[in-house]
């Protein structure tokens, strides 16, 4: 078979390309909503932990956050996905996409929390003191002064976490979800050709990651104005 024939056989025959399209759509859906959940929850955890570090308050909440981080970071994402699907939502009829979003979002939150907390810690204590000495509250100082600088500092790390998350969703197939990886794999199982479908899958991931990196890069450059 020539290259074109192989291409035709793997992707065009029986409209097999649709597996990839559905898969890609699901991968993107899971990633986007998991990132949103991860950032929101991670942000909250980072605030609780930083508030505790700086003031010694919120002891119980801080303890719960630490337990959460330990458990999530100490177990494989795949096991977490399986637990969320087969244990937590075992008796509930729930969309698998939602299960994946929850599992990957909860997972990512732990990493996002530590990234944002490291950003907050990287800001000199003097910035906080200057804010507080002007009469700003802890919350105002955080919101107006510390967080904008902290987020700027951790943008590369956050971008990296989003990339990791996107690729991590490739295990969604284990709960019977058709993501991009599973889509390619279905084609492989039908055509008994590994090279084309898997190469196509890899290329699509690569392109998305490149696009993400480009966005993060641009944002970074825009935020760097004050360091001239």
């Amino acid at each position: 078979m020539t290259f074109m024939e192989k291409f035709q056989f793997n992707f065009l025959e029986n409209s097999r390309w649709q597996f990839m399209v559905t898969g890609l759509k699901n991968t993107l859906l899971i990633s986007v909503f998991a990132v949103i959940l991860g950032v929101a929850l991670g942000f909250l955890i980072a605030i609780v932990r930083s508030f505790h570090d700086k003031t010694g308050k919120l002891k119980i909440l801080n303890f719960l956050c630490r337990v959460y981080l330990t458990v999530i970071r100490g177990t494989p994402a795949m096991v977490q996905l399986l637990i969320v699907y087969y244990v937590i939502f075992a008796s509930v009829n729930i969309d698998k996409l939602l299960v994946a979003v929850i599992a990957f979002g909860l997972n990512s939150a732990a990493y996002v929390a530590e990234i944002i907390r490291s950003g907050i810690m990287s800001i000199d204590e003097g910035q906080t003191e200057a804010g507080r000495s002007l009469g700003l509250s802890f919350t105002q100082t955080m919101r107006l002064i510390i967080l904008p600088q902290a987020l700027k500092n951790v943008l590369p790390a956050l971008g990296n976490e989003f990339i990791v998350l996107l690729k991590e969703t490739s295990i969604s197939g284990y709960i019977g979800l058709m993501d991009l990886t599973r889509g390619g794999d279905i084609i492989r199982s039908q055509t008994y050709e590994a090279l084309f479908p898997l190469l196509a899958v890899a290329t699509i991931y690569l392109l998305i990651v490149c696009f993400l990196s480009y966005l993060v890069d641009r944002l970074e450059r825009r935020l760097r104005v004050s360091e001239r």
């Binding site: 200057a130 002064i145 004050s226």
Partner: peptide
Amino acid sequence: RQKIGMVFQQFNLFSN
């Protein structure tokens, strides 16, 4: 604190 100004050794201007 609004009525007590403070100037620091390290200036502590908001760098952003």
